[in-house]
Design a binder for these strands. Structure first.
Lengths: 188, 188
DNA sequence: CGCCGAGTTGAACTGAATCAAGAAACGTGG
DNA sequence: CCACGTTTCTTGATTCAGTTCAACTCGGCG
């Protein structure tokens, strides 16, 4: 719980009152590895803070499915487009390792937006940062080669990606597992 | 001015007081075609609503530069990452056609965030929608072929893209101008 | 022990990049 | 408003990164 409070305090001043209200709506949950947190077709009902674990976002496909995001500790995860629009998700969210989440429901969050001063601020902050990250990945997809994308991921998250099967990394980078295997060999 | 108010009213209820405060900070400006609205290296100081015109976002590159976004009428434009973080932009923003904007400065917007009820709400809404759009483009880059991307753009914005030079569209789609010329020929 | 999914490696194929040259369109000054 | 020069678009030939199909290895697990 401290972890989340610290995260928020790194963003903005937090009154005890607001924090108490917010944290009273948080529920801790643990999940085993390979657990589906959100199934395509279902509507996302939670915004979750990752205390521990690795989480994969992907769209099911014939043959290799399309992995487009990994989340790690100290990040918020959610099928955020489904969550925002309260329409069915087009993708799955699954734990790759044993995971601990602090979760808040959509309805509780709307209440927080309405009743606390920092609600909309935090919602705005979340939206802005998700945007900045997605934008960075978009530019990288347009301008970097597969090899550059792998190297970026590798230098940014060496530890973390070592726990992720190659075939998921391959799809995140935008190539087949065979191609990534060769890229790896090429750069050692 | 009516255009912006309508835009906001389509999102949320707007009190006259909030609207008066907000609109008092808006300045209308006109720009000729090929005018640089934001130069890479400069920090974005405006959030602008497009009343009329087409705007291109791009990063300068040797040979073909990288165009990653087009904005049209009834959209907000800004070097939003630079604007949010108040650090220098890594890309240029340029008008493609004669353009009319309603602009608000960073400082005025911060004041609106602090002093009106809807400030953070609107900021949150803007962040969320920028995220949703960027995320859609990201998925499309990962899963669609160049041809599919062109067809999507074409069916969504037929009218508008007819005014945009092929070489900019090519870079947006993620291929060279030669490749897009051939894709076009293939599909007529 | 044998099976199965994950990773590696090879060979043939393909879509797009690159290099190059000519045609069309555009804008700018006389 | 025309003429020229520049930029944009098209088309062809070659090269290359990555795909696809296929076979083989390795490690974990029932």
């Amino acid at each position: 719980m401290e972890q989340i409070r610290k995260y928020f305090e790194s963003i903005t001043a937090l009154t005890d009152k607001d924090w108490l209200f917010f944290s009273s709506r948080l529920i801790q949950q643990e999940f085993p590895k390979r657990h589906l947190l959100l199934k395509a077709g279902k509507t996302e009902s939670h915004l979750s803070f990752v205390e521990k674990g690795i989480i994969r976002f992907y769209m099911p496909k014939e043959e290799n499915d399309l992995t487009f995001y990994f989340a790690f500790a100290n990040e918020f995860v959610s099928g955020y487009d489904s969550f925002l629009t309260q329409t069915p998700s087009v993708y799955h969210i699954e734990t790759l390792t044993a995971t601990t989440l602090w979760r808040i429901t959509y309805n509780d969050l709307q209440e927080i937006y309405q009743q606390t001063e920092i609600g909309n601020f935090i919602g705005r902050h979340a939206g802005e940062h998700l945007y900045l990250d997605s934008f960075k990945r978009e530019l990288s997809l347009l301008s970097d080669t597969a090899e550059q994308r792998y190297l970026k991921l590798f230098t940014e998250k060496t530890r973390l990606i070592q726990q992720i099967p190659l075939k998921y990394l391959a799809s995140y980078i935008g190539v087949t597992p065979q191609a990534l295997s060769r890229i790896r060999k090429r750069i050692y």
